[in-house]
Computed example of a mutant assay.
Amino acid sequence: MDSSPREPQRLSALYQYHNAPEVAPAHGLEYDDTVYPSSDKYPVIHERLYEGKLSGKYGFGGDNRPPRIIFGMKVRTFLVVASVMVLVIVGAAVGGAVGGQQLRENQAQTMYTNGTNAPASNPSASTSSGPSPTSTFSAATPTYTPLSDCPDSNNTAYTSSFSKGSSGDTRKNAGLHFTKYCDLSNPLSTDGAQRIAEAFVYSFSDCVEVCAGYNFWNDGSNCTVAVYQSGGGRPGNCWVGNAGDIQASSLNETQGTDVAILTTS
């Protein structure tokens, strides 16, 4: 009987006794020739761990973890796309600001070119003021009908509201008292008469107030006549001026024309 020690049989796969074809051992499953006292039917797995990864002779060659993904893109791709988007947004904002400024300057230049009123030749004035506006605004026209208090007010005295102190100094009483006459010719159409102002009013008294207001603010009696035509249209149905020492008796009868003459006494 051979008393030489028995050499252990070399393991070739997961199990020692089988008739199946041999295959390459899985990664981490290696041959082991060491004699174990209990059983050598099972393979020995040598694992060398380092920070959660297989390393060394039996470890993996690289990091097989999946790459980091942001919005479906790799980190580098995401950073490139984000940088491009930021540049596009900044460029659009700057371009919009510059374009808006250029548009305003072009509109201002167009308004100035098409305008009928040129700016003053004074350099300081042209620098501080912008181009003359060319657009117009049409306000709603009142639909009131001008009224006449004739013939009831014929040959009656009228005192301006300025004499009541509602607008300032009550001592300015010169040129505030008138006499109304109905259906007389226009004294401002005579030779030597001077027209001071024209207005569109809605009553005979309003027309007289235009003349009285001129006298009040100029502290005199330069306006002596107010002529009112209730049937007149815009821009004026009231004319005020200076007709000298005109007398109502010297005027002819004219339907639709009312005259107020300044009272000198």
Rank of each mutant, 00 (worst) to 15 (best):
D2E: 10
S4P: 00
P5R: 14
Q9R: 15
R10Y: 06
L11E: 08
S12F: 04
A13I: 00
L14H: 13
Q16Y: 04
Y17W: 07
L29E: 05
V35W: 07
Y36W: 13
D40E: 09
K41M: 09
Y42V: 11
P43N: 07
P43H: 08
R48A: 05
L54V: 07
G59S: 11
D63S: 10
R65Q: 13
R65V: 06
P66R: 12
P67H: 06
R68F: 11
I69D: 13
K74Y: 02
V75M: 02
T77P: 00
L79C: 07
V81N: 01
A82D: 05
V84T: 09
M85W: 07
M85G: 03
V86D: 00
V90N: 07
G96C: 06
G96H: 10
A97L: 14
A97T: 07
R104G: 02
N106C: 00
T110I: 08
T113L: 11
T113V: 03
T116G: 14
A118Y: 12
N122C: 12
S126I: 03
S126V: 09
F137Y: 14
P142V: 02
T145V: 14
T145M: 02
P146R: 04
S148Y: 06
S153T: 13
S153F: 07
N155C: 02
T156S: 14
T156F: 04
A157M: 03
Y158D: 03
S163N: 06
G165K: 12
G168E: 02
R171V: 05
K172F: 08
K172Y: 12
T179K: 13
T179S: 09
Y181C: 01
Y181W: 15
C182R: 05
L184D: 10
S185L: 03
N186C: 06
N186G: 07
P187L: 09
T190H: 10
T190F: 10
R195M: 13
E198T: 15
V201Q: 04
S205L: 02
V210E: 15
C211I: 09
C211K: 10
C211P: 08
A212E: 01
N215A: 05
F216I: 08
F216R: 08
W217R: 10
D219E: 14
C223D: 09
T224W: 04
T224Q: 10
A226T: 07
Y228P: 08
S230R: 04
G231F: 03
P235V: 05
V240C: 03
N242H: 13
I246G: 01
T254I: 06
Q255L: 13
G256S: 07
A260K: 10
I261N: 03
L262Y: 08
